[in-house]
């Protein structure tokens, strides 16, 4: 369950005694409407369905019913400036089905909080006030550039 090569057989029979998987997975928002118990991931290209199941169950303690995977080829596109052809990386998608009782809704991370606009206004006011102070301090020497003064 990792991308490393297993040690070759030699004298002393070296083995991986400490298991350090180096696979990565990232949870992404579903591109299409899915059942509430289906979660979409991007994962390492080397991961198999069994790997994904074990990864989630053992490391994240998430019960998994079924895993489906597919590999989406990266798009070929022309570079905007130079016009040469660029290929985006291929992505391995994993669709993980949780038990029926579980639901997962992708959280809205960039939700505006209630106090946000107030905070913005407050910082704007502060900036205005400090600018007024700056003008006040330097009113006698209007020809001196701002970077010269304190």
């Amino acid at each position: 369950m990792s991308t490393r090569w297993y040690p070759l057989y030699q004298r002393g029979n070296p083995q991986l005694r400490v298991f350090l998987p180096n696979f990565w997975m990232k949870l992404v928002r579903s591109s299409v409407n899915q059942l509430p118990n289906v979660v979409q991931f991007h994962c390492s290209m080397e991961m198999t369905k069994h790997d994904i199941k074990n990864y989630l169950e053992k490391i994240y303690n998430i019960p998994v019913v079924e895993v489906k995977t597919r590999i989406a080829m990266g798009k070929f596109r022309k570079d905007v400036g130079k016009g040469y052809i660029v290929k985006d990386d291929d992505i391995k998608f994993a669709y993980v089905t949780l038990p029926k009782t579980m639901k997962f809704e992708f959280p809205n991370i960039f939700e505006k909080k209630k106090g946000d606009t107030e905070d913005d206004m407050k910082s704007l006011d502060e900036a205005k006030k400090s600018f007024k102070g700056f003008i006040q301090r330097n009113k006698d020497r209007s020809d001196v550039p701002s970077w010269f003064t304190i």
Binding site: K26, V39, Y60, I62, F104, P107, I109
Partner: peptide, 11 residues
């Protein structure tokens, strides 16, 4: 073990 799934560990 909390009821909410640990998928929130991804965030």
């Amino acid at each position: 073990t909390s009821k909410h799934n640990n998928l929130m560990d991804f965030f």
